[in-house]
Amino acid sequence: MDLSIPLINSLTLGSLYTLMALGLTMSFSVTKIANFAHAELVTIGGYVTALLVNWMGYGLGESLIAAFFASALLAVAMDEGVFKPMIKRGSKPLFLLVASIGIGLVVRYLLFIYADLNAVITVQAKTNVQLIGRFGRAGITTIHLWVFPITIVSVVLLHLMFHYTKPGKALRAMADNEDLARVSGVKIYTLRRLMWFIAGGITGVAGGLWSAYSVITPEIGWYALLRIFAASILGGLVSFWGTIAGGLIVGFAENFGITFMNTYFNVSTAYRPLISFVIIVIVLLLKPTGFAGFDIVGWLKEKVKGGGE
């Protein structure tokens, strides 16, 4: 059995899921909001990229930068417009989660209307994707030259930011203990905005890469959301390296796992999303802390109980 094609596919998907999941992990760890509207950050990034490339004739690089800013601003707007006011009024995390589903629906269907009017319900960024070499039977294309370096550079830059800059360390501190960060003088609302901006931005770039790698619809983010959550939950929703491992594991599980089950147990590939789902359930049941850190179930219990320090 030649494994080169599933290997390259897994790495490509794993990288894209990683980029998407890193944004979710960042926003969850700092704000403790399980943001379902994260899906729409992927989609907006994808559309901005595809439309700039197809309609304006921009290069992929410039379009990805635009996608970064578009999703970054959308993420900031979500927080400033909905989450922050709700938190200030003392909303429970469950309400924030429901609100995020609502935001997602609104953005998704606005996008649907727009896409319908402009006949771009399905669209692909028409970049010149060409074969540049082979790895076994698998083709290495120009899109891989975008996906892999962007993922690696993003991971390295984020790591440097979190460990070697003041705002980065403060964000980690906020994720650990917001009150303590405040009494240490951290301007949490400014940093929160910075966090949403970066988290939204990289998620948008991932969506943009997706529009060049494959094809997008207004629901692309929604369909990817299960994987994004699976990847992030594997890292306990808060762990940086755990999320990266999670993204790659989801990418590999979906390609190797399903190929394996299909070959040996005749399981239909249509069951592919079940892999991510099973990952989520197993992690929540057996190891609620993921690979590192955060006790999701414990946290939920505490929040449901309400109040109490």
Binding site: V186, G293, E309
Partner: peptide, 29 residues
């Protein structure tokens, strides 16, 4: 955060360090 800048300091009863930061990073914070 503004009170902190005016010269107030606080040591909480519980949860008074950042557990995922190193000791040095805590001091920097």
């Amino acid at each position: 955060e503004v009170r902190a800048r005016k010269g107030l300091g606080f040591v909480f009863q519980v949860n008074n360090v950042f557990p995922n930061l190193t000791v040095r990073e805590n001091l920097e914070m």
